[in-house]
Design a binder for these strands. Structure first.
Lengths: 339, 339
DNA sequence: CTGAAAGCGCTAACAC
DNA sequence: GTGTTAGCGCTTTCAG
């Protein structure tokens, strides 16, 4: 309630020269005790430290970075803040960057990126040392030609043919595993609930879906493939509605995201179809609700934390000038109740 | 696939002086056309722009900020990346900062903050111009004395007695509304499923719960109050389990978060109790799953986007030296199926 | 072991 | 209208 309306001046921070004169030394010496770059006499150091403490001095990161030519800040580009999947990846990233002394700048890159987009300004403007991108392939694409040698790493979106190293699971193989599981359970008419193929993973999972069907000599029917307009629950409901309208509806659905799967289940239930008895539904990602929802979701789990951590390691390696190889991590099929 | 292992040098960026000599002008002139600070001759400007284009020049934000004394970067402190509630707030923040030309640095502040914690370095080190904090009150508290006049704004966590302006709903009143709704539906034994009271909102909602009961001459029974160990689904299940063990179990539960509510419903179902027939369950937040889950959640919706936007406006005002008042936004009771 | 001084890349007076 | 110059706050030779 105490709504303060006074105009508060931003306090003036002490600079290195203030510390220097307070301690009776030169700024070079202050810099030395701060960075431990060179030996400093014990009591000189003590005097400096006392002055730092007294003045509440903190190094100005701007000036330091300008001098050093690095900021120890990494840019993380996410397509959507609200998606818990990305949040987990970020946690993975942070677990490694934190202990290496790097900070994270997180920006939402929901639209097509151009070299002059606000998201990239900070990079090209030297505010960040490198980028970890979770952005959609389609958004990244126009940029790929322009950034032949800037320190980028793609995470989850595996961009096979580009110069950008990446860390990802094998989305295609994961989809094959999922569909094969359904086939093993006796399903013959399996629908695909996919997401915008602006996402590389959506394309790759789609690909795996078709491959698995063909391998089992099952027909690939175009009307059994639905591209949802987004990845929210509603989009899953929408797309599943279209499947329901079919004269010969599927007995199983493979959704490329748990959110879509849950939306689909909801839509099926509304018209009295039971899951998994009437239609089996598989998801992807293993988000937290997946095990709480009823029926609990059978799904593909990605090693999200590890994905993020690996991407961070990779970028840090590149930054250090070391060779950095792309990486494929393992996924896992989790059998629960929905399929 | 194409794992590149060549060592890629970070390209050298052109500086303002390179542009200046390429265009045959002084660096001051380049600065002028870049910033539009002063009138520049039409063809001088053209020459400069051509040089900028040719060299792919971009202003070094470090140097600029060092000069200007501001970075146009805001620090957002969140207690948990994975919580969609915070993600929505950030979107609100971003909607206003983006058009005002400010960038966001997002950091997870899950532990107690000290003046020397990494999360705050960027502020004290002048990397950010101000902070929007969604951090838990308890984590913030030790800091409050030290930052009497740094540009902070608290969001969602309403810190009544401090100097920090805030934007929030009236958590206590929202809880009163929720409990009163339950009372109106005839419930007499209403349990509270709360979260760690390190969160100010948890305290305030707890407070509202007790007030509403007393106001209705209902007893406040300590055993009907459970503090979950976290805010994930599992924590809701855990805490609800304890309620089940009671000799006289509640007929209704008010959970301070939708995730807890869903966890509780799951726990009730497991032992064959129907929701809402046997136990009514109310949530808080109206997260996306709330309407998809079955039964759909009756809950309190917060104007999340607006909360974030308002916090951003407030901070920007403070930064501009204008008076900035704390704000209380409106919540809404959403009746669905669970209570 | 310590200080003086040269920048890092930019903006903003201040001259002309 | 444009150039010169003085810093912003720091790190890092180079002397001593």
């Amino acid at each position: 309630m105490s709504a303060k309306s006074k105009v508060l001046p931003v306090p003036k921070l002490a600079s290195i020269s203030a510390v220097a004169s307070a301690a009776g030394v030169s700024i070079a010496t202050v810099s030395r005790v701060l960075n431990g770059t060179k030996a400093v006499n014990a009591d000189t150091r003590a005097r400096v430290e006392a002055a730092v403490e007294a003045l509440g001095y903190r190094t100005n990161a701007l000036a330091r970075s300008l001098m050093r030519g690095e900021t120890r800040l990494l840019l993380v580009l996410v397509p959507d803040f609200a998606n818990p999947y990305f949040a987990e990846i970020i946690k993975g990233v942070e677990s490694v960057t934190r202990q290496r002394g790097y900070g994270l700048v997180i920006a939402e890159a929901s639209q097509t990126l151009s070299r002059h987009s606000a998201e990239l300004d900070s990079l090209y403007n030297k505010l960040a040392d490198g980028v970890i991108s979770l952005a959609r392939y389609a958004d990244l694409k126009p940029l790929l030609g322009e950034i032949p040698d800037l320190p980028w790493v793609a995470c989850s979106e595996h961009v096979g043919d580009s110069e950008v190293p990446s860390v990802s699971i094998d989305h295609r193989q994961a989809a094959i595993d999922a569909v094969q599981y359904l086939i093993n359970r006796g399903h013959q008419r399996i629908a695909l609930l996919s997401a915008s193929e602006d996402y590389m993973w959506a394309r790759q999972r789609h690909d795996g879906y078709e491959y698995a069907l063909r391998r089992a000599n099952l027909p690939v029917e175009p009307q059994l493939v639905r591209i949802a307009r987004g990845t929210d629950y509603v989009h899953g409901m929408e797309a599943a509605g279209a499947l329901l309208a079919l004269e010969a509806p599927p007995t199983a659905v493979f959704a490329v995201a748990d959110t879509l799967a849950i939306g689909a289940i909801k839509a099926f239930r509304r018209v009295g179809r039971r899951v998994p008895e009437d239609v089996a539904v598989m998801g992807f990602d293993d988000i937290p609700v997946a095990q709480v929802f009823e029926p609990a979701l059978t799904t593909i789990a990605q090693p999200v934390r590890e994905l993020g951590a690996a991407a961070a390691e990779l970028l840090l390696k590149r930054l250090a000038g070391e060779p950095a190889e792309s990486l494929i991590l393992q996924h896992a099929l989790i059998v629960r109740a929905s399929a």
